[in-house]
């Protein structure tokens, strides 16, 4: 599990807190630089007929905008920059983690939990800001008989409170399980004799492809669920 280890590259301290520049920090900064650099560089031309690199940037934009529009409607485009930042940040961190020998920031529960908690707090804050205490009606679904309420309402409340946990654990467990799996099979390649080494190698190669899919899929799922939670807060369809 050495790949998940945090290494302090530059020890730093602020007001008694440890804010050392670690390998995780390095990859977060790298992601920030790559994303900003790519998106800004891609749009330098700003041509009406996009160049190859510009059309990549635009299709990422359109992809996230499509998710936001589909779940939140045109009005939800107000939250688009935030959702886009979440998507591109997680996607880039996941993809950077796929480079052999690199560090996967999203395989750390604290990072994914912080992101999920941010989503949950922002969504809940928007919900209360828009609907006041009426937002609590979210826990009382329509069309449920009164005698079921004592059962349904606690379930709704628990499922609402558990959202940041399920959101963060999904991303964390997927990334960690995938990387651990690759590691285990790669270690088979070392220990198996002769020709048999080929099987774990082939499997690892195939599984790496699947992991790229998972890396994208998890960023996508995180974004879609963010939009769904936001939709609960903004529109309260229930």
């Amino acid at each position: 599990m050495a790949q998940f280890e945090i290494k302090r590259l530059v020890p730093l301290e602020l007001f008694g807190y440890d804010i050392s520049f670690t390998n995780a920090s390095l990859f977060m900064v790298l992601a920030l630089v790559l994303i900003s650099g790519f998106l800004i560089f891609a749009m330098t031309g700003r041509s009406l007929v996009p160049s190859r690199i510009q059309s990549i940037a635009e299709s990422v934009y359109e992809f996230v905008a499509g998710i936001v529009r589909e779940n939140l409607g045109e009005e939800g485009m107000r939250y688009f920059p935030w959702v886009f930042s979440i998507f591109i940040f997680i996607l880039t961190l996941n993809m950077l983690g796929m480079i052999p020998g690199s560090f996967t920031v999203t395989s750390h529960i604290i990072v994914t939990f912080a992101l999920a908690a941010m989503v949950w707090i922002v969504a809940t804050g928007i919900g209360f800001a828009r609907h006041g205490l009426g937002y609590l009606k979210l826990f009382v679904p329509h069309g449920v008989p009164i005698w079921l309420m004592p059962l349904i309402v606690p379930i709704e409340i628990v499922s609402y409170l558990i959202r940041p946990i399920s959101l963060s654990v999904r991303l964390f467990a997927n990334m960690m399980a995938g990387h651990t799996m690759l590691k285990v099979f790669a270690s088979f390649a070392v220990s198996l004799p002769f020709v048999a080494k080929a099987f774990p190698v082939l499997f690892t190669a195939a599984f790496t492809g699947l992991e790229f899919l998972v890396a994208f899929l998890q960023a996508f799922i995180f974004t879609v669920l963010t939009c769904i939670y936001l939709n609960d807060a903004v529109n309260m369809h229930h």
């Binding site: 599990m1 998710i67 589909e70 399920s166 654990v169 999904r170 964390f172 467990a173 997927n174 960690m176 399980a177 651990t180 899929l217 998890q218 996508f220 799922i221 879609v224 669920l225």
Partner: peptide
């Protein structure tokens, strides 16, 4: 297709919770 992926993620997450417990027990 989007609903498919959401359903896939939700179903997978429950299993991963168990895997997480296993990892926590182990390590």
């Amino acid at each position: 297709f989007t609903n498919l992926l959401i359903g896939f993620a939700l179903a997978e997450a429950t299993g991963l919770f168990g895997l997480l417990i296993a990892l926590i027990i182990l390590f």
